[in-house]
Design a protein around this nucleic acid. Structure first.
Length: 258
DNA sequence: ATGACGGTGTGGCACCGA
């Protein structure tokens, strides 16, 4: 089965690209971040016409997440239970796979702005809450995938200029420690299960010709549970949509599980 | 180099993202 995560940076703008991508790749499920749509504006009809079911959790202007799947998702959860959050950042559901149902969690992690900011403190609280909820989800659903825009570059090799980015947002020791704690729950970074081209990024700034110069960060991730790890056959970043006219600044990350 | 680029909501720009 094929699963993917994609920060679309406005689903209103990127819907045609999403539909084309679904058509080309026929994934079993995709989680979206930064839909930037209130729930009444979600393009459910267009996505259903493409042969997919959808679950969504949106808000105005910022954030907004969705879970698109070929099978109907069950046990849908929006945001982190017990963590009061004004911001729509999490959607989870259970989807069909050839080896049983797979718990699929899509998340748009807070950016954090700067290490000394209130937004960074929120990011830390949010990460604590997500980790503890994912711990409980794993106990209930051994076949689990946590994917999304983590806004964390786990290691220096995930950063085009690690010297310039040292200690900066996405690269702080605190954020990287949080990433390791997710791994400590019994999850694995699917991308690093395989040999990958050096300088593999999932995000490139819109500015400074960053994509053309391949100056980016790997901040979008797919973490799979130990039960799924032996089944993972590939994990790739699809740079093709970043070459579209009016692209998202993020590329989809795709995992294949057999 | 604190700006660029792009999206949103607003209103002729400000804010935010990463």
């Amino acid at each position: 089965m094929k699963l993917a995560t994609w920060n679309v940076n406005s689903l209103a703008v990127r819907l045609p690209q999403l539909l084309a991508w679904l058509d080309a790749h026929r994934p079993d499920a995709v989680v979206l971040q930064e839909t930037k749509l209130t729930d009444d504006k979600f393009p459910a009809a267009e996505i259903e016409a493409a042969g997919y079911r959808a679950q969504w959790h949106g808000q105005k202007t910022y954030n907004g997440v969705a879970l698109i799947s070929r099978s109907e998702a069950t046990g849908v959860v929006k945001n982190i239970p017990g963590f009061g959050d004004e911001q729509a950042r999490v959607i989870a559901g259970t989807v069909d796979g050839p080896f049983g149902r797979v718990r699929t969690i899509g998340a748009y992690f807070p950016n954090g702005q700067a290490p000394d900011s209130e937004k960074f403190a929120y990011k830390m609280r949010w990460l604590d809450a997500l980790r503890e909820w994912v711990r409980a989800e794993l106990a209930e659903h051994p076949q689990l995938v946590l994917m999304g825009d983590f806004n964390i570059a786990p290691e220096d090799r995930d950063v085009y200029d690690p010297v310039a980015w040292a200690g900066q947002i996405h690269c702080t020791p605190e954020e990287r420690e949080h990433f390791r704690q997710f791994v400590g729950l019994g999850l694995v970074d699917a991308f690093r299960l395989f040999e990958q081209p050096p300088k593999s990024w999932s995000w490139w700034d819109y500015r400074n010709l960053a994509f053309r110069k391949n100056q980016g960060l790997r901040i979008d991730h797919v973490l799979v549970s130990e039960a799924l790890k032996p089944r993972v056959t590939a994990c790739t970043i699809d740079k093709a949509p970043r070459k579209n006219e009016r692209p998202s600044d993020h590329a989809p990350v795709v995992v294949e599980i057999a």
